[in-house]
Nucleic acid binder design. Structure first.
Lengths: 156, 156, 156, 156
DNA sequence: TTTT
DNA sequence: TTTT
């Protein structure tokens, strides 16, 4: 039985194509950012938007799903927990902190059933080479070139 | 209608007596930390606890409630949103980040009926002087010295 | 300061066009249903989907937003609280219960870029008469016939 | 990857001692209620409390934890999902509905490290015989009669 | 820095 | 760095 709760719920847009790496163990790790925005009234009574960027991390199966289906601009719902890592910066010797959300659950809302589509290539063809390679075990070309990904196309 | 969601739910214990300051406007700001812990199996298959510390901030009425009723060791439920502030460190010139949870809702679960009671003093008598001063506009001595704060004692 | 928490988070699809009524006071009330589904393994080890239908209620401004922008099939994120009403059934004399989610926050995720568009009518032209009348103060025809509603169209 | 979200968070007090039964399979099922209350202003501008009762269900290990550690009056945090069962009432032939929260996570906040203690009996000695029997595989008398249950006493 |  |  848990004695505490550390829960985060975010719904926002992915800032850029996720970066997915594989640990020596073969386990996947995904890093991505999502933006949320809130509307508030400034001192002059004008409505302003403030954007907040969140660093997300996913492991294993979730990281693989992200590699295969999440890309820049997608709208995402996630549940996770907050974790702050700290280390001593080697050059300055200062203590540094980085707060990340470890993803537990993920719902892809992106939609538009597509992607940045354009260009002469397929799905994320324009991604960095490392990203390209990561996707080599991803969806087949038939899938990635379709104009719309439906639920039936997604094997989970 | 919101277009995104940025929500945090934490339930944990307060690390030390909250610090409450007043802005020139007279508006209160409270800073406090709470710990959550999760249990996980280490590589050797042993159960380990990992503690996560969260920096919380509250404003206005919520900050005043915190000043008056929250202290070190209390168990707290909060809802809030994540906010990361960044600035350039004056000495090192480096970019620094600090992630905080802005408290929206708060439920005080502590009690223990309550307080570290003991000692020769009352409620928080042993707090730092700054904390002591902050409480000077808090509950009356009659209240703070009682051995149990009941709901009837709390005017909100 | 709250002493308890009653919070619901749902993300699912709207079952049919919402019904919106106006109280004598002129205040709007919206009723709608959304479906969530969970995947579970049955006794035979096969994956099954179970759909859960939720009765939602919104008031005032939120009800008006729903009237104007939410329709059958839309994907919706909502935060709310659980409320169970009970009454004595007039014919059977039995105690009846109805559990509803009172919507606090709402994020419209639908889009699909969008709408059932087609048919001989516009946006929700086919709604029931009560619904039809309610929508008489809804979006203009120019808006409702557009093939895509963008944020720029939405005045909030 | 989930396509929807059905999540409930409740923090409130247990209405009476939970009822725990065992299925023929040996699997435990716990039923309990918790109350949440909200404060609102009535038409006369007076603050009123409205209490909402929630029907909770837990299975297996969680049900056993509830049997062993949760009792009337305890404060509980739970995460779960909403589920509505329906059936045809045998006598009236009417469709009946019952909405329940299936508990996923549970944090016992009860505290006071005790219980209704008093009386001439022990922990729940006054429970129904079925409840008594259910507890026969619960904590030992030494535990249940102790004036304070600490985490060290709890084997999870 | 908390808590059990 | 996102989105509308």
């Amino acid at each position: 039985m848990a004695k505490s709760v550390n829960k985060v719920i975010l719904l926002g847009n992915v800032g850029k194509d996720p970066e997915v790496k594989f640990l020596p163990s073969g386990s996947a790790v995904a890093n991505l950012t999502i933006a949320t925005s809130e509307r508030f009234k400034d001192k002059g009574g004008e409505w302003q938007d403030r954007t907040e960027w969140h660093n997300l991390v996913a492991y294993q199966r979730t990281a693989e799903i992200i590699r295969d289906y999440v890309k820049k601009g997608n709208k995402l719902y996630i549940e996770g927990r907050i974790q702050t890592r700290s280390w001593d910066d080697k050059t300055s010797g200062e203590k540094k902190y980085r707060t990340e959300i470890i993803i537990g659950e993920l719902v892809l809302l992106s939609g538009r059933g597509d992607g940045e589509s354009g260009g002469g290539g397929g799905y994320n063809r324009s991604s960095s080479s490392s990203s390209y390679d990561q996707r080599s075990s991803g969806p087949s070309d038939d899938l990635v070139n379709s104009t719309e990904i439906t639920d039936d196309d997604i094997p989970f």
